[in-house]
Simulated scan of single mutants.
Amino acid sequence: MAENKVLLVDGMALLFRGYFANSYGGYIRKTKAGLPTNAVYGFVKYLLDACKTFNPSHVVCCWDMGSKTFRTDKFNDYKGNRPEAPADLIPQFDLVKEVVTGFGIPNIGVVGYEADDCIGTLSKQLSAHMEVFVLTGDHDMLQLVDERVKVVIMKKGPSNYAVYDADKLLEEKQLTAKQFIDLKGLIGDTSDNYPGVKGIGEKTATKLLVEYLSIEGILENLALLPKGVKAKIEAELEMLHLCRELATIHCGAPVACTPEQCLWQPDQAKIASMFEELEFNSLVKDVTRLIAVS
Rank of each mutant, 00 (worst) to 15 (best):
M141Y: 12
L186Q: 01
Q143A: 03
Q143P: 05
R148N: 14
V145I: 02
N193D: 07
L142S: 07
S127L: 05
D116K: 05
I187K: 04
V152Q: 06
V134W: 13
T136F: 08
I153L: 12
D116Y: 10
V145R: 01
L142V: 02
S159E: 13
E131S: 15
A166S: 12
D189S: 07
M141D: 05
D138N: 10
G201W: 00
E131R: 15
T206K: 05
I119G: 00
H129M: 08
I181R: 13
K155Y: 03
E202W: 08
D116E: 12
I153Y: 02
D116F: 07
I187H: 00
L186P: 02
Q125K: 06
K198I: 13
Y161Q: 07
K156T: 14
V163P: 07
N193M: 07
Q174W: 14
D116P: 13
V152G: 04
D116A: 13
Y164E: 02
D146H: 06
S127H: 04
P158N: 14
D167C: 11
D167E: 14
K150A: 02
H139Y: 15
Y194C: 02
L135M: 06
G157M: 01
V197W: 00
I200W: 04
T121M: 00
A162K: 15
C118V: 14
M141Q: 13
A162H: 13
P158Y: 09
P195N: 03
V145M: 03
A162E: 12
T176E: 03
K156H: 13
D167A: 14
A162R: 15
A205R: 02
D165H: 02
G157D: 02
T121Y: 00
S123Q: 08
D192H: 03
M130G: 07
G157N: 03
F133D: 15
T190I: 12
V163F: 08
K184P: 10
E172I: 05
E171Y: 14
K173D: 11
V197M: 06
D146E: 09
I181Q: 10
L183S: 00
G185I: 00
L135Q: 12
Q143R: 04
L175T: 01
I181H: 10
E202D: 09
P158G: 12
D116H: 11
Y194H: 11
V163G: 00
N160F: 03
A115Q: 09
A128F: 06
K124L: 02
I181M: 11
T204P: 03
T190M: 10
L170G: 15
H129V: 11
H139G: 13
D189R: 05
N193V: 10
L142P: 07
G199N: 00
K203N: 10
D116W: 09
V149S: 10
V197G: 05
L144S: 12
T206S: 06
V149G: 10
L135K: 12
G120F: 04
E131N: 15
A115R: 08
I119E: 04
L144V: 10
V132C: 13
A205H: 01
D146A: 07
G201M: 00
G185R: 03
E131V: 13
S127V: 03
L126K: 11
S191A: 13
L144D: 09
S127E: 09
E202I: 08
L170V: 11
D189L: 04
S127T: 06
L175F: 03
L169A: 01
M154P: 07
K150Q: 10
K207W: 01
L170N: 14
Q174V: 12
G199A: 01
S191I: 13
M154A: 05
Y164T: 01
V152P: 06
D165N: 11
